[in-house]
Nucleic acid binder design. Structure first.
Lengths: 129, 129, 129, 129
DNA sequence: GTGGTCTAGACCACA
DNA sequence: GTGGTCTAGACCACG
């Protein structure tokens, strides 16, 4: 599992960690039941504050992507969350904003859809690769 | 032009204004050359501070969506920005994160693509409506 | 005398008028002693406020570029101002800022000087053209 | 890094700060990667408001001269911006106005060019000094 | 009346 | 402690 963090980014570090782990789960670099590094070791590896890693893990736990056991540490949830209304809401809101800007800039529907197709496909390909 | 702002949202108010105006341009509720409300009147209407509206307008100006005229006020740019690399980067990064979570949650490619298609179509329909 | 005003520019209109007239004098499109259009006619031609034109003329008068007679109207001064300390100060300050940014951006001294040479030459050429 | 600001000047304070920092970068008083004072400390030092300093930093960030890190603060960008078209436009427009006035006032091309040469040279000398 | 600038001071997110 | 956001209210330049 590789974390490609950009400490200069406007995106908070904890959010980047969340995104990276969800990406890892999507591409099955991280398989359900698989343990994640401890808060302590991960923060040391990346060279960031423990609180930051902890915050990321808490968010992933609340969303149902990981389980946190006091003893066994953190692992990918064996029962990943489904397509919940709150996710659909966020998805819709984000897609709406992206699509609106795309339309303004003259990006065709085909080009936009192809982008989505390609990104989806690439992640599915990585699952087998 | 209706602004449906959530003052309690985590999304900054100025960002919500930006999004609303881009949406308005995409759906042609706001046509190129059309004037936008003045900083003062809009802030009074929404019940927020002048500077917050101004910040939104400045962002839209920097991105090329509006022109700001010291005396005539703010209007939609007649030459809207095109598909610039920076936009494609943002689009790709955002779509990647959304897609990763969608895959984790078991949303099929067809369902995701259909969402995008639908959102795009709805906005184009609003143009004529 | 052609005024190429950009009403959308951040540069105040009166300043653009001042710049245009100084440019006209430099290239001898406007010769010493030559009358300038009246405040009223110029403002009508350009389609702007009389006060704006008047402000431009007052600045030009204060700097010694034009003479304003109550009856005869406005004309280019037959004794143009020389290289005064205040001008040298402004010139130095402006050049310093431009040069600093040029250096930061990696523009070579030769390229910068060539720019100045070219601009100077073009204006002198227009004198004869 | 010394800021020689004129609070009474027509030039906005935030612009003077921008100019001073660009000058500092040009003369390598500020080296790439070097941290700049925090918004709060600088504003306290100069005796002006936080937001004014922040505005200057935002402009420098947008132009690519500095990086803003939510926690680490502000630092000079290690990859300074290059000679972009927008800069060349500004450079040309400003030089044109300065040159026009110089010609009107009888400043010779040699004298003007020498000024530029001298200013450029002085800044490069300061780099080593 | 428009936006631009600046101030004073508050609370929050991040690390 | 850092910058980000937002408020309330002032004065100015412009036309």
């Amino acid at each position: 599992m590789i974390f490609n963090l950009d400490l200069e980014s406007e995106v908070p570090i904890y959010q980047q960690i969340v995104d990276a782990i969800i990406y890892g789960i999507a591409t099955r670099q991280l398989k359900p039941g698989e343990p994640l590094p401890s808060v302590r070791s991960l923060s040391a590896d990346i060279g960031i504050n423990m609180h930051t890693v902890n915050k990321a893990y808490q968010i992933l736990k609340n969303d149902g992507f990981v389980l946190i056991h006091r003893q066994k540490g953190v692992m990918v949830n064996t029962e990943l969350p489904g397509v919940e209304p709150s996710f659909l809401e966020k998805l819709h809101a984000d897609l709406k904003n992206l699509t609106a800007e795309a339309i303004c800039r003259g990006l065709s529907r085909e080009a936009l859809v192809e982008q989505v197709q390609k990104i989806y496909q690439q992640m599915m390909d990585e699952r087998r690769g």
